[in-house]
Write a protein that binds this DNA or RNA. Structure first.
Length: 582
RNA sequence: GGUCCGGUAGUUCAGCUGGUUAGAAUGCAUGCCUGUCACGCAUGAGGUCGCGAGUUCGAAUCUCGUCCGGACCGCCA
């Protein structure tokens, strides 16, 4: 028998018991006459004690152990004379009677501690060692518990989990596909799913009216700290529902997870804001509403007053920073260089400070009198001590820059608090987006998203202004999930493909099976997909999803542990009838 | 496709405007130590300064290229 208990469960109540423990050697403290060994498994750490007086031979053997050796010990649980209140097992130790060395270990390249000395690069290469660390084990356990609670909740609501294929068909819409060559069909390729979208809709057509799946999805796009080439979605779909039903159901799931994993209860329904309003007030479709500082447009108020930068701008807007008048010149300069960074792209920053003594100071005093600036103050409901930050330029870009500035300032002021969660439904997304480069419309969500009934007439006259029955769940400025009510009418679906620039023939080739299916009694349906990795990271308190994935890829899509992607042999290529260009 | 940051001992880092033998901490090894828990003390080993070229009397340091890692913009229905 390797173990009777784990290294995390013994305490004062077990005193006197004979136990067997197995695990890894965390650390050895050799005091000469006696030696302490910390034994670790994923449940905790238990101190082993060896004494020269009691058993010199055993004690000498214990001193020979090294870090990460695997051992099994038998001994008696004893009360410590010096207790350690910092650890759960700190009141006891094991007086070892028998020590079995199960395996030795090379010296690890970094320390297996919560506060490791290893850098990212090294830890990724030795991921299996990194995963031994408590911090990572905690993250993966959180992930496991969240997945369990998702299943528990959805199962209890009569959802059923159905698997869908990974080897599917490449489609021209959306992200780039990962592609898999077919040996049995030379020159032809499968694609890995970007999401099981059509399959879950087909399941609705098949009558599985409440479906979910915790499933891998694949997108061949450039990566970020919160984007992996393969990622996990909680993919859901329901039949006989309207948007309200969907939001209510998945708000329920969200609240359940918050309750079970964060002990956090929300009073009342999540707030809901139309896309248009999110853009106007926050400069983004995924606003962080843990704090206010909403963007306001002031174009009419300040345009045409002789300040060329404003007079030539399509849009002028700003945010009000409470108590911002105390910002130093250095700080406002830093904010100016922040907005001028190429990623933000603003030309400059105008500030107006309303000082405690009632005076106003601004970077545009030359152009605007004190009275004019004070009337601006009223537009923002600003008081003494506050500061306005104003940007001007092209409407879309300026709003986006203001959104970034808002986050930057809030970050500096500590308004984006860690333990606080502010969920938000963003609804009424546009159905389509115009692309200048290819001169055509693209689906903002995907081509199966239904337009709002009242906007359907606009499909012919003003497609860019058609709103969709589409929604995102945003928490603390992170897009956690998104979905829509789908099109369940084959004529409307066909029309969508037309608007997206497909000829009837192309639509037939790409989506024929799906349009056929729609004709066989498709129920009204809709759904949502949650970015599971991001959700876990949000709950775990990190921006990087890599810390919550057992074996992640780096920002070039490489797995540096197994060193892939990698070339394949000439034989494999030949079999697949593939020639590689150099 | 683009921008920025980094690469020096096993590890994390310092090393200024180029100038003696490239340092610290930690880890590791050895010795001492009977209540440690980041044990302590002493001694010691450990380096192609990512790689290549250039500038220079002289390069870890400056320049260019390249590789690797990270962050971001574009991209991600």
């Amino acid at each position: 028998m390797y173990r009777s208990h784990t290294c995390g469960e013994l305490n004062i109540s077990n005193i006197g018991s004979e136990v067997t423990l197995s695990g890894w050697v965390q650390r050895i403290r050799n005091l000469g006459g006696m030696t302490f060994v910390d034994l670790r498994d994923r449940y905790g750490i238990t101190q082993l004690v060896f004494n020269m007086d009691a058993n010199a031979d055993l004690c000498l053997r214990a001193r020979e152990l090294g870090r990460e050796y695997v051992v099994s010990v038998r001994g008696k649980v004893c009360e410590r004379s010096n207790k350690n209140p910092k650890m759960p097992t700190g009141e006891i130790e094991i007086e070892v009677e028998r020590l079995d060395l199960l395996n030795t270990s090379e010296l690890p390249p970094f320390t297996i501690e919560d506060e490791t000395d290893g850098g990212d690069e090294l830890r990724m290469k030795y991921r299996y060692l990194d995963l031994r660390r408590g911090a990572l084990q905690k993250n993966l356990y959180l992930r496991h518990r969240m997945a369990s609670e998702v299943r528990f909740y959805l199962n209890s609501m009569d959802f059923m989990e159905v698997e869908t294929p990974f080897l599917i068909k490449s489609t021209p819409e959306g992200a780039r596909d990962y592609v898999v060559p077919s040996r049995l069909n030379p020159g032809e390729f499968y694609a890995l799913p970007q999401s099981p979208q059509m399959f879950k809709q087909l399941l609705m057509i098949s009558g599985y009216d409440k479906y979910y799946q915790i499933v891998k999805c694949f997108r061949d796009e450039d990566l970020r700290a919160d984007r992996q080439p393969e990622f996990t979605q909680v993919d859901c779909e329901m039949s006989f529902v309207e948007q309200e039903d969907l939001l209510k159901t998945f708000e329920g799931l969200t609240k359940h997870l918050f309750m079970k994993l964060k002990g956090h209860e929300f009073s009342g329904p999540f707030p809901c804001t139309p896309y248009r309003q999110a853009i106007d007030s926050y400069g983004t479709d995924k606003p962080d509403i843990r704090f206010g500082m909403k963007i306001r447009e002031i174009t009419p108020a300040v345009k045409g007053e002789g300040f060329a930068i404003f007079d030539n701008a399509e849009y002028i807007g700003g945010i009000c920073v409470r108590q911002g008048a105390s910002f130093t010149r250095k700080e406002t300069d830093q904010l100016t260089s922040f907005v001028k960074k190429p990623q933000i792209g603003a030309k400059g920053l105008v500030y107006v400070k309303f000082k405690e003594d009632g005076s106003v100071s601004s970077s545009v005093d030359k152009f605007f009198g004190e009275e004019k600036l004070k009337s601006l103050m009223d537009q923002f409901n600003a008081g003494t001590g506050d500061m306005l930050l104003i940007l001007a330029g092209e409407r879309r870009k300026t709003l986006k820059a203001l959104g970034e500035l808002r986050l930057e300032v809030a970050g500096r002021l500590g308004l984006r608090k860690d333990g606080e969660f502010a969920p938000l439904w963003v609804v009424d997304f546009p159905l389509l987006e115009w692309d200048d480069e290819t001169q055509r419309y693209y689906s903002m969500h995907h081509p199966f998203t239904s337009p709002k009934d009242e906007d359907i007439p606009l499909l012919d006259t003003d497609p860019g202004n058609v709103r969709a029955n589409a929604y995102d769940l945003v928490i603390n400025g992170v897009e956690i999930g998104g979905g829509s009510v789908r099109i369940h009418n084959s004529q409307l679906q066909q029309k969508m493909f037309e608007i997206l620039g497909f000829t009837p023939r192309q639509a037939r080739e790409q989506f024929g099976f799906f349009m056929d299916a729609l004709r066989y009694g498709t129920p009204p349906h809709g759904g949502i997909a949650f970015g599971f990795d991001r959700w876990v990271a949000l709950f775990g308190g990190s921006e990087s999803i890599r810390d919550y994935i057992a074996f992640p890829k780096n920002n070039a899509g490489r797995d540096v542990m197994i060193n892939t992607p990698s070339p394949i042999s000439q034989e494999q290529l030949k079999e697949l009838k593939i020639k590689v260009e150099k």
